[in-house]
Design a protein around this nucleic acid. Structure first.
Lengths: 136, 136
DNA sequence: GTTCTTGCAAATCGTTTGCACAATA
DNA sequence: TATTGTGCAAACGATTTGCAAGAAC
């Protein structure tokens, strides 16, 4: 088992890529970004490091309905809204801990670890596109 | 394009399987169940029909952090809690429409379509297992 | 120098698809 | 009989893994 983590160039660039890309990139998007700086980087290195960084708590993964995993560098409590057309994910300021009567008492005996609130909708770009198509 | 849906034996059995299995089965679990009644059924038939039934609104899919899709026959408003150890999913009675100040105003310009609240925790079976292991 | 990490290619897993045959309306 | 649906096998896309060579400590 890996105990001591090494501070490799790739790992640094990958973390920076997620931060700079901002809007919850997929591994593939991180890969593209990283390769513009370190062209020999492999996709498996990206996946491995995203995993390591998530283990270290520097990133989190966004559970989505899409098949790709998205990565999030925002360490504050927040929720997400995903576009049902293009898959884009944005932050939403909802704070479950502020909500009255939440979480509920009856959890069928589960020990609660985590709350994730995910909204689905249509993003401004896609609804704009739909408007335009109607006119044509 | 398929317009008229036929009421095949397989489709009936698949829908019944999801209902009887109850706790949000995966396609694979539905497949096993269906094959105990119709042994020649193929996995692709199961996938295709789960898709058709979801289109018809007779089932819904549960977006999870796991890689498999789970299917739900419960048509009422409700939320889910997933076990982070075994992946089991249970219903929770949370009604987003009852929650105060929810959904929030500011959705970054998104048109809201759907709200999904997903809790993560440890199910009774898994926490029991952990207790037992400590004692050993 | 030891051990972690990389890059590459091959493997894996859940799901989807093409196609000829079978079943439904 | 006109389609829709099936079973099988092969294809797919996202992710993981085995391994020999390279880099960090």
């Amino acid at each position: 088992m890996s105990e001591v983590r090494r501070n490799t160039r790739q790992r640094q660039v990958i973390l920076r890529a997620v931060r700079e890309l901002g809007c919850h990139p997929t591994a593939e998007q991180v890969y593209d970004r990283v390769r513009s700086e370190l062209p020999r980087t492999s996709l498996s290195t990206v996946y491995r490091n995203l995993g390591v960084l998530a283990d270290q708590g520097l990133l989190s993964t966004v559970a989505g309905a899409g098949k790709e995993v998205h990565y999030d560098h925002n360490r504050e409590e927040h929720c997400h809204i995903r576009c049902s057309l293009c898959g884009r994910i944005c932050d939403v300021d909802i704070f479950p801990s502020d909500m009255e009567g939440f979480p509920p008492e009856d959890l069928s005996g589960f020990i609660l670890q985590e709350v994730s609130i995910n909204l689905v909708g249509i993003c401004p770009a896609c609804s704009g596109k739909m408007e335009k198509e109607k006119t044509v």
